[in-house]
Design a protein around this nucleic acid. Structure first.
Lengths: 340, 340
DNA sequence: GTGAAAGCGCTAACAC
DNA sequence: GTGTTAGCGCTTTCAC
């Protein structure tokens, strides 16, 4: 097999000192003479010593790791979240262990098990964003006794960090209402997904007394293609506004409409949600609601670190971060608004 | 602190058997009576036993892990790659440890060190895609003695899996030449990045005898905004074709041009590269060159597993996967081509 | 079939 | 300052 890696005792033998000294020296302890420390460092480098994390973790009974599961890394929203989490966690001196559940409950449970087996010191849970039975995952999370915070959505009895989606949707609807729409189509994904249901409730509530006729359409998935085709179905009987639950879908709508020669926002307004790349990379830059992902990441890590630090199990805490309405060019032709 | 986790010896004590028996039973060894195995299983579950991976890895001297570093998880190309790698690696019974270098050489080295310290059994190296000194990373990789394959680009002396970019670019240029362009603008990123230089050489070579006037523009980054603004600069003196080194940039060009009332492909053809979401989520679906990411992932893992399995260090192997020309609507108005 | 014992590489008391 | 020792949780011979 492979030549096995060099260990602390190898370098101890080389120098004729004890393992303890080497260990201390490597950890830069002032217990050991500066000169010895230097010698240890040198031969460690020469021999190509690389510490064995498994051994260290075993004895220290801590891993210095924080784990995260996300449902879909190809989704720019989660990709950004992971990136930000990675930075925040690094700043805290821990390392981030990333798992992808691919929207599969089995894989999600597997990921959680792996995190627990790896003895992560805290877990960041971003559940599958598709209707599914997540009770297995919840049970694992709870039984583990490992501090956990759920990010980007809400789970009963768990500490959560997410955006105030209701508030964001309300802001969006107020903006839309300025255009006095008579007919609004609301384009969403499957029912039974918290973050979607939540937007929808807020939308319906905020639009209720507008006098507009509201149509809600549920698509099997929140993606470009679905939205593109749904927009085609709207062609015969165009609404004044099409509200989409994310930017990617809104882009699908914009592109279909543009292709058909329908002008945005002159003929119809289109709105997105998230303020992702797609809201800019759209032929008509999208009016949308910004979810501040860096802030979510920051607060998530902050809260998790707090949980890890506290001996007792504190009450679970819900953090709803403010959203921001971003007005671009896809809405309300001829309406000027004062800057917020 | 926290109540410490239940161990094998806890469950051994509970049952009045030895640790060895428990260990064997948990690993489903036929050495232990089926009935005992069942009893062990049960109490393990009752007690909420979760194996400690650090301990296991320490004694087994293997981690069952494969590591990967990618430069940027927000880049859809790398996000897809990671997703595919994750699946392929899972199929092989290993788990994937994901690191993000954020295009920072220091973070990249840190990630590689972490992988080595974690004693991953193999590494998948996707270098920073920005000009930088990567010799530190290379040295770490080589000195580690851990089997490594570099994915999506080429590094001397290392096993690599990537697409045949030259060939892809040649196909693209042949397609473009059907439109008899007199003027072609080639929009690229910074110089000194292998995958970019490579495309450019191939482009220049293939366009050389076309009689077209060729202008190469190097942008500081391969992103939407840069391309969008660059396209603005082209407005006064529009070429027949704008070749972009990736879809995201092409989308920027398409959107700027569309905004200015320039019709694609009637007035100008635009091409992308990669066949990412952006080539579809474009108001004018993009003609592009597909990089088969699932294939890259598959071959990468396959090759890595082979390296891990072999006792000797075999010659480094270069795999260039075929690309495919995807003709959509952004090129060559009025030109019909036979299906490939 | 099951138990005893050794040891993976490292850290942390506690001696000296 | 440095060495000695014990032990983290697990697997794995080797006896019984």
């Amino acid at each position: 097999m492979k030549k096995s890696a060099v260990t602390i005792s190898d370098i101890a033998r080389h120098l004729g000192v004890s393992e303890a000294t080497v260990s201390l020296a490597l950890n830069n302890s002032t217990m050991v003479k500066a000169e010895t420390r230097e010698r240890v460092r040198l031969t460690a480098k020469e021999l190509g010593y690389v510490p064995n994390l498994s051994a260290r973790r075993l004895v220290m009974k801590k891993s210095g790791m924080i784990g995260v599961v996300v449902p879909d890394i190809e989704n720019v929203y989660y990709a950004s979240l992971v990136k930000e989490l990675s930075n925040r966690v690094a700043e805290s001196g821990c390392s981030l262990s990333i798992f992808i559940s691919s929207n599969d409950p089995k894989k999600e449970e597997r990921a959680i098990s792996d995190m627990i087996s790896s003895r992560v010191e805290g877990m960041i849970y971003v559940p599958i964003n598709t209707p599914a039975d997540l009770s297995g995952s919840r049970r694992l999370l709870e039984r583990s006794g490992i501090p956990t915070v759920c990010a980007t959505t809400l789970i009963d009895g768990m500490s959560c960090v997410l955006c105030d989606l209701e508030d964001g949707m309300k802001r969006l609807v107020s903006h839309i209402r300025l255009g006095k729409p008579k007919k609004i189509v609301y384009l969403s994904g499957p029912e039974g997904v918290y973050t979607l249901d939540c937007r929808q409730r807020a939308f319906l509530g905020a639009a209720a007394d507008s006098g507009a006729e509201v149509t809600v359409i549920h698509l099997p998935a929140v993606d470009y293609r679905q939205a593109f085709e749904a927009a085609r179905g709207l062609l015969g009987n165009l609404p004044d506004v099409i509200v989409c639950v994310n930017d990617f879908m809104a882009l699908g709508v914009v592109n279909l409409l543009t292709e058909k020669g329908i002008s945005i926002p002159r003929d119809v307004s289109v709105t997105g949600f998230d303020d992702s790349v797609f809201s800019i990379a759209s032929p008509v830059p999208l009016t949308t609601v910004r979810q501040d992902i860096p802030a979510i990441a920051e607060k998530t890590v902050e809260l998790l670190l707090k949980l890890i630090g506290s001996d007792t199990t504190p009450e679970s805490e819900i953090l709803k971060l403010p959203t921001e309405l971003i007005i671009r060019k896809s809405t309300n032709k001829n309406i000027k608004e004062e800057a917020t």
